[in-house]
């Protein structure tokens, strides 16, 4: 029997987490996104050999993400202490990954900016290490959130994969914009468009499986899903995630890839819409995270 109470509804109803999305908690959403975009841009730029993308990806992931994380902390001057618990805390592991990417990424990019250095940007060891750290850096927010059993929407093994695919997709989109701006030949452009389309299709599959498995989770998971699909996050999900983030870019990129006709305006719009979708889904996931009620759970 549900207890009907006013002052502490969080104890008798499914209550949303607020600390990581409201107030200065919004910075965490932004930092997780920038980590994905930066790492994704770095990886795709490495694959497509785009130095501007490598530098931009490093700046986004290390400088911007790092700065925003500091802004989110209650005591930013003590941020170095985050390194104290790598055995258990995913936040510590995340910082180690960002630092690792910062170091190896900088070493890999440096010769492009300072040609007098004794090594080159093509050094395989640096490329592999920087790519590995970038890859793990995109994944780790999924582990940070997925570790929390108290919020069933997040406690899903697919969450890191979802973050990875979105990170790569965002990075691939930005890499495409850089290539468009540089005016590279159409063959290289279509190669990126093809990769983007494949990533977009992978993302559709993963999002579908993620939401289906959440539907089979406990009641708090189902309630979270209801909020996203039918509740106050519904408009954001359907317009932001589905229409702008999936349908619109998929149409544009599939058309471009299949016909081979490149429209700069359409592709740019497709990438921007996909970025909106990426922002929207991560906002939905953070905002819809619900706790089980404290009281009826034991009755």
């Amino acid at each position: 029997m549900m207890v009907n109470l006013r002052p502490y509804e969080w104890m008798v109803k499914y209550t949303p987490q607020r600390e990581w999305i409201e107030g200065c908690g919004i910075f965490l959403w932004l930092a997780f996104i920038l980590g994905g975009i930066g790492g994704g841009l770095y990886l795709t730029s490495l694959y497509f050999n785009n130095y501007t993308g490598l530098i931009l990806g490093w700046i986004i992931a290390v400088i911007l993400k790092g700065g925003i994380h500091l802004a989110e902390l209650g005591k930013p001057l003590r941020a170095w202490r985050v390194l104290c618990n790598p055995r258990n805390s995913w936040i510590t592991r995340g910082l180690i990954l960002v630092i690792g990417f910062g170091i190896f990424g900088a070493l890999q990019i440096a010769p492009a900016v300072f040609p007098s250095l004794p090594w080159t940007s093509d050094a395989l060891v640096l490329k592999v290490l920087a790519a590995l750290f970038a890859f793990l850096m995109i994944l780790y927010p999924g582990f940070v959130m997925g570790y929390i059993k108290a919020i069933p929407l997040w406690n899903n093994a697919l969450l890191p994969v979802l973050y990875l695919v979105y990170g790569l997709l965002d990075g691939c989109g930005l890499c495409l914009l850089l290539v468009l701006a540089a005016g590279v030949d159409q063959t290289a452009l279509l190669k990126i468009v093809g990769s983007f389309t494949v990533l977009l299709i992978s993302m559709i599959v993963i999002v579908s499986i993620y939401f289906t498995t959440t539907g089979y989770a406990n009641n708090a998971g189902k309630e979270s899903l209801q909020i996203i699909l039918k509740g106050h996050l519904g408009p954001l999900f359907y317009i932001g995630v589905l229409v702008l983030g999936i349908v619109f870019p998929l149409g544009i990129f599939a058309f471009t890839y299949l016909t081979g006709s490149v429209s700069v305006v359409l592709l740019t719009m497709g990438v921007i819409c996909q970025l909106v979708g990426s922002l929207s889904i991560r906002f939905c996931l953070l905002k819809a995270g619900l706790y089980m009620p404290l009281i009826p759970g034991r009755r």
Partner: peptide, 22 residues
């Protein structure tokens, strides 16, 4: 003196018994 206010503990506590004092 060691807490940095990341609020991971606030989020992770299934009993919601932690308060971020800001």
């Amino acid at each position: 003196d060691k807490c940095i206010g990341c609020r991971y503990c606030v989020i992770a506590c299934p009993y919601q018994q932690r308060t971020f004092y800001n």
